[in-house]
């Protein structure tokens, strides 16, 4: 077991914040309050998560674990649509579907065949690994789907031209799908290729601190990196194709109201 951090220890941790506060004071950067609020929020959220996870881990009930995972998925879908500045009402369900398809199925596969768990719903695996897949796919989806729709809107003529050149809807959308996927995978590929040199990722560091052997830690990390990559590609692709069923009218034209903040033409 790793060394316990006492509350006094945590206090010393918070004491470190004096450094940024002094720097901000010196350079007259007015971000102190904002930063402290964020840190306070993070602390409360994590304490709540700690309480809840203790409960979930103690129970280790498959239904409860799944429920918790689905809650995370539904929150990710909400966050994704919100951050893409798209209309929540029309895009929530397809985005939810994309996250479920892209993370849940892959998570089940990893638990069953990679980690080789007897019970694939085991809380200490389902929840943290699910969280890693979800968190990364969320980032990728926000960038990828956002890029897909913004470039479609910006270069609508290219799309229309392709339609008039005889493309079906999916054929006409291909360059935008490629663009969206590329933009979401570039950071992922960059991360993957610098890992182990520039930084030791959180999961691996956690296992090392918890006393695992470096080789166990890297095997987990490799498995997680591969599944993060796969689930990002899957989520982004599913999100693009599922939302596009909703975002285009039966003439294949982009509906305006799926974008938030578009001034109504009136």
């Amino acid at each position: 077991m790793p060394d316990e951090i006492s509350y006094t220890g945590l206090f010393f941790g918070f004491l470190l914040l004096i450094i940024p506060l002094l720097i901000m004071r010196y350079v007259r950067l007015n971000m102190g309050k904002e930063s402290l609020t964020a840190i306070l929020r993070m602390t409360i959220q994590l304490f709540l998560a700690g309480l809840f996870l203790t409960f979930v881990f103690d129970m280790n009930n498959p239904v409860l674990n799944l429920l918790w995972f689905f809650l995370m998925v539904s929150f990710a879908a909400f966050e994704s649509v919100q951050r893409q500045e798209m209309d929540l009402k029309s895009l929530y369900l397809p985005t939810l579907g994309a996250f479920l398809g892209g993370t849940f199925l892959i998570l089940m596969y990893v638990n069953a065949f990679v980690i080789d768990l007897a019970n694939v719903f085991e809380a200490p695996y389902l929840i943290p690994i699910g969280g890693i897949l979800l968190g990364n796919s969320l980032g990728g989806t926000i960038i990828g789907v956002g890029n897909f729709y913004s470039s479609l809107k910006r270069n609508e003529n290219r799309y229309v031209s392709r339609l008039s050149f005889g493309a079906g809807m999916n054929e006409a959308l291909m360059p935008y799908v490629r663009k969206g996927l590329r933009s979401s995978l570039k950071p992922a590929v960059g991360d993957i290729s610098t890992i182990g040199i520039v930084h030791l990722p959180g999961m691996m560091s956690g296992q090392l601190i918890a006393g695992a052997s470096p080789f166990l830690a890297i095997k987990y990390q490799i498995a997680v990196m591969v599944s993060v990559y796969v689930s990002t590609v899957t989520c982004v692709t599913l999100a693009i194709f599922l939302t596009s069923r909703i975002c285009f009218d039966e003439y294949g034209m982009l509906k305006d109201h799926v974008f938030r903040n578009t001034p109504d033409v009136a």
């Binding site: 270069n155 229309v160 008039s164 493309a167």
Partner: peptide, 27 residues
């Protein structure tokens, strides 16, 4: 056949652009 006044029909090598159009199911 529609030729729009907006000639921004895509990007990339002209040959690839044309080849892609002729890879559509219909063409």
């Amino acid at each position: 056949a529609y030729v729009s006044q907006d000639t921004d029909i895509g990007e990339g090598i002209v040959k690839d652009l044309i080849n892609e159009i002729f890879s559509f199911d219909h063409n």
